[in-house]
């Protein structure tokens, strides 16, 4: 029994010694993986079949356009098409009614050419792997976002109509009615904007109810549904955003 106790004590002592060794020095070095860095052939081989089939997918024709569409402010067919697709698909995915969808104008990096449209053409429109974020916001937050949109000379939007007067949003109609500052709305943005990007600080911290839908995937799905219904890619320019006289 005595012996047993001393063994136990000894064990504690050993542990105490072991435990006493603590971090004293840390050297750091971060490696940047530059374009010139050599590649590992095993990993290259592993990845090849995936990237090959990704390549095939990207070159699949999924729709058609009857005219060439460029982005334009304060409103354009291309912008409306993107915002409408974003709203419709996000609504399906999130399972809530989405009152409005927005796309930061600077984020659109390509156009749609007349003729057949491939998956890659859709991915090229906003090539940042953005995801659609649906947020639940008070009307006052929506107004603040729309003032920002007005200050940026108009962004593609869906579900909204408004006028720009001296860089402010006026006559805002959302869900077919004037904006109510105290009502709650679900709105869709890219993760970049929803996280406060482009100085959209009013959106930072607002509750996110959905954030798992790749924007380009949503648009590919939207184009596929248009094609299935025999419709061409596009949207009407219908004075969603205009300058007040």
């Amino acid at each position: 029994m005595k012996l047993h106790l001393s063994v136990t004590l000894l064990t504690f002592w050993v542990i105490a010694c072991t435990n006493a060794k603590r971090t004293v020095q840390v050297q750091y070095r971060d490696y940047e993986l530059r374009a010139s860095y050599r590649t590992d052939s095993v990993m290259q081989q592993f990845l090849q079949p995936y990237t090959d089939s990704l390549y095939r997918y990207m070159h699949t024709i999924i729709g058609f356009a009857t005219f060439t569409m460029y982005k334009k402010q304060p409103e354009s067919a291309l912008g409306n098409f993107l915002a409408d697709g974003m709203r419709a698909m996000a609504e399906k995915k999130a399972g809530v009614h989405i009152s409005a969808a927005f796309i930061n104008y600077g984020g659109i990096r390509s156009a749609i050419q007349k003729g057949e449209v491939s998956v890659e053409d859709i991915y090229a429109l906003m090539p940042y792997n953005n995801v659609i974020v649906v947020q639940k916001c008070k009307g006052s937050i929506v107004r603040s976002l729309l003032d920002h949109v007005a200050g940026r000379s108009g962004w593609p939007c869906s579900g909204i109509s408004m006028k720009i007067r001296s860089r402010q949003a006026q006559d805002i109609v959302i869900d077919g009615a004037p904006l109510n500052e105290n009502a709650w709305y679900y709105i869709a943005n890219t993760d970049y904007i929803a996280g406060g990007g482009d100085n959209c600080l009013m959106l930072r911290g607002q509750e996110q109810v959905s954030s798992n839908y790749l924007f380009s995937d949503a648009m590919v799905g939207y184009v596929q549904s248009l094609t299935q219904n025999g419709k061409a890619i596009g949207a009407a320019v219908e004075n969603r955003i205009t300058y007040a006289p």
């Binding site: 010694c17 006493a20 060794k21 603590r22 971090t23 004293v24 020095q25 840390v26 050297q27 750091y28 070095r29 971060d30 490696y31 940047e32 993986l33």
Partner: peptide, 15 residues
């Protein structure tokens, strides 16, 4: 995957 972080940690002591 743009960077790989590295921390070399020296642990010494005892006693």
């Amino acid at each position: 995957g743009l960077a790989l972080g590295r921390l070399d940690i020296n642990i010494s002591g005892g006693g």
